[in-house]
Simulated scan of single mutants.
Amino acid sequence: MKALRSLAAGFSIAASMLAFSTNASAQTSILGRFEADVGNYAPVALGSDVTLDACNSQFVASTNSDSYSVCSITPATTVSYSWLIRNADTGALTNIVNTAGTAGSNFVLSTGGAGDFIQTAGTYQLLLNVVTTAFQVNIDTGSGIINGVFDFGTFGQANSASTGFVVALNVTPAAVPEPEGLLLLLPAMLYAATRRKRKKTL
């Protein structure tokens, strides 16, 4: 009898472990692909910084309309971002950055300084490619983690669907500050003009 109780207890523990293992591995998986979005930006004055935001880019499911921001993928370094910029007037092309994680998804672009990618005012076009070398990524939905599995059969690679260059950034000329010296001399100039007027009257 004692042996039967021990055997039953063993089966109970094994069943509990199996159930725990099954629940732990029962993670939702969806087939999909990346779709890049360069974002929208207000005009920026030459000499200011602008943060290029890739978080509007999505992992889009192949079988339904579900989509998830690439910035909800964990760890963030699973995904790399390649930004390119082109001057809409001259056609000059620059590869800004190709890096993983938040440094790429929120890239701070400086303008107007020596060595900066943008050194003149004008209209600029942006292109973004979102890439991963992983077969699947973990997506934090806020209520749990799901597996985003790349639909290689349909799309062939884990690169984002490219929409080409998008006019997204207008850089305006830097404001020219008023010379402080003129402001300081203004009272003296008014005083001198008043004295000359009085002399003429006399």
Rank of each mutant, 00 (worst) to 15 (best):
L52K: 02
S143D: 12
I118N: 07
L31I: 01
L169R: 01
T132A: 09
V137M: 13
Y124I: 11
Q125R: 12
G113R: 08
T77Q: 11
A188L: 11
A175E: 06
V50C: 00
Y124F: 11
V38S: 03
V70P: 11
A14R: 02
L169G: 01
A92C: 02
A45V: 06
A9L: 10
V137W: 14
I118S: 07
A103Q: 14
T154I: 07
K2L: 06
Y191G: 10
L184W: 05
L7V: 04
A61R: 04
T99M: 05
L126F: 05
L169I: 04
F165N: 04
Y191I: 14
L4V: 12
G153D: 15
T120E: 10
G142C: 14
T102C: 08
G113I: 09
S67Q: 13
S69A: 15
A36E: 00
F20Y: 10
G181V: 14
A15M: 08
R196N: 11
M1C: 06
A121P: 03
L183H: 02
G156V: 08
V130L: 12
T120P: 00
M189H: 03
T154N: 12
T77A: 15
L184C: 00
L46M: 13
L184K: 12
T63A: 15
V79S: 04
S21T: 09
M17Y: 03
S29Q: 13
L31P: 00
T132W: 03
V38N: 04
F20A: 15
L4E: 09
G47D: 06
L182S: 05
E180I: 12
T22A: 15
A8C: 06
Y124P: 04
Q27F: 00
K2T: 08
T102E: 10
G153L: 15
A24M: 11
M17A: 14
G164Q: 04
S16D: 10
G156Y: 04
A121Y: 01
V130H: 10
N129R: 10
L127W: 02
A175L: 14
L128G: 05
C71K: 12
V176Q: 09
D116T: 14
G153C: 01
A92F: 04
F135L: 15
F34H: 03
I73E: 10
